[in-house]
Amino acid sequence: METASQPLPVEEKTSPGKTNTEDAKEPVVDMTFTRELRQATKDVHKLSDVLVNAKFALALSDDAVWYDGLLAFYEVYKYLEENLPENLLPKELHRKEAFEQDLAYFLGKDWKETYEPRESVKKYLTHLEEVNSRNKLLLFAYAYQMYMALMSGGQLLQRKRMIKRKLWIGRQEEEEEKLEPANSNAADDDLEHRPMPRQVTICPEGCAATFFPEKISLLKNKLRQVLNDNFGAFDDELRAEFIEESRNVFIYNGDVVRSIKGVNRANLRKLAIVLVFVMGVYFALKLAKR
């Protein structure tokens, strides 16, 4: 049985370095439930980050790896958008058409004719069906984590990818430094003030899935407010179920990430290039000493 709830008030306060006019456009949302949920999923979230970083350390600029990642997660975003009402998943967050646009660019307009979801995705969708049949509010646990990930990690990955392909304007060294907070541990604990990846403001072909025309901070606040409007009104049993499904997001995502093809090939190719370069420098120095 789904729990009805009343919207929680948005906290109106002035953030450091912002004017009252700016705050009127971008109110600060109460982060209490966001912190609680993040703390409850911190261990599996960190394991997921380690997996992603290890998997994609050198493969980000490889198109085959990128589009196989899009293909792997396409069905998950599609399912969420087709099964959650707008009050739980605002339309402006929807990514299905953007994923399809990118996949058509990389694989051709007829990509769906030979496409079949991989086993890890089928398993994921079966679980989402079961969750949806129990309570759509539990399905929102997946939407909250998946869209926050796309608006944070997705932006970071896209910008790093664009830097490697020399598509981002500005000094590459400065851009790389700005992608990560200086103190990651402190940033994890301070969700309200931690620096976030700067928004991708240009959309070359093949990056529609991670491009948001609207200001991402506003979209994040909308999603946080949906969490506030519901999570705060849950009874203890529903809250425990919601947290459990929030943890399951990272477990199922991990299975899908492991299925992405081409990562080892791309990493080995880049390591080979680095090795050739290092050996070239080594022999050049030896010759110079003769």
Rank of each mutant, 00 (worst) to 15 (best):
12 E>K: 07
77 Y>I: 02
67 Y>I: 05
84 L>W: 00
46 K>T: 11
66 W>Y: 09
22 E>C: 06
33 F>R: 13
39 Q>G: 14
71 L>G: 03
34 T>Q: 12
57 A>V: 13
73 F>K: 07
89 L>S: 00
43 D>W: 11
63 D>T: 08
64 A>K: 13
30 D>Y: 03
78 K>L: 10
15 S>W: 04
13 K>R: 08
40 A>F: 05
24 A>Q: 06
25 K>T: 06
83 N>S: 12
9 P>Y: 01
92 E>F: 15
69 G>P: 01
13 K>F: 08
75 E>T: 08
37 L>A: 01
88 L>M: 01
72 A>S: 14
21 T>A: 07
81 E>D: 05
68 D>Q: 14
77 Y>S: 03
51 L>H: 10
88 L>I: 00
80 L>N: 01
76 V>C: 10
41 T>P: 12
19 T>G: 07
87 N>Y: 14
59 A>E: 02
62 D>V: 09
41 T>S: 13
42 K>Y: 13
45 H>G: 12
56 F>I: 01
13 K>V: 04
22 E>I: 06
61 S>N: 11
12 E>H: 06
30 D>M: 07
21 T>V: 07
46 K>G: 11
94 H>C: 02
65 V>G: 08
18 K>Y: 05
25 K>C: 06
10 V>D: 02
27 P>D: 02
15 S>H: 04
77 Y>V: 03
46 K>P: 09
58 L>H: 05
59 A>D: 01
93 L>F: 01
10 V>N: 03
63 D>Q: 12
16 P>T: 04
23 D>H: 08
33 F>S: 10
37 L>S: 01
89 L>A: 00
83 N>H: 13
53 N>E: 14
45 H>R: 14
98 A>I: 00
35 R>L: 15
22 E>V: 04
60 L>Q: 03
92 E>K: 15
17 G>F: 02
61 S>Q: 12
36 E>M: 09
60 L>H: 04
87 N>M: 12
42 K>C: 11
64 A>T: 15
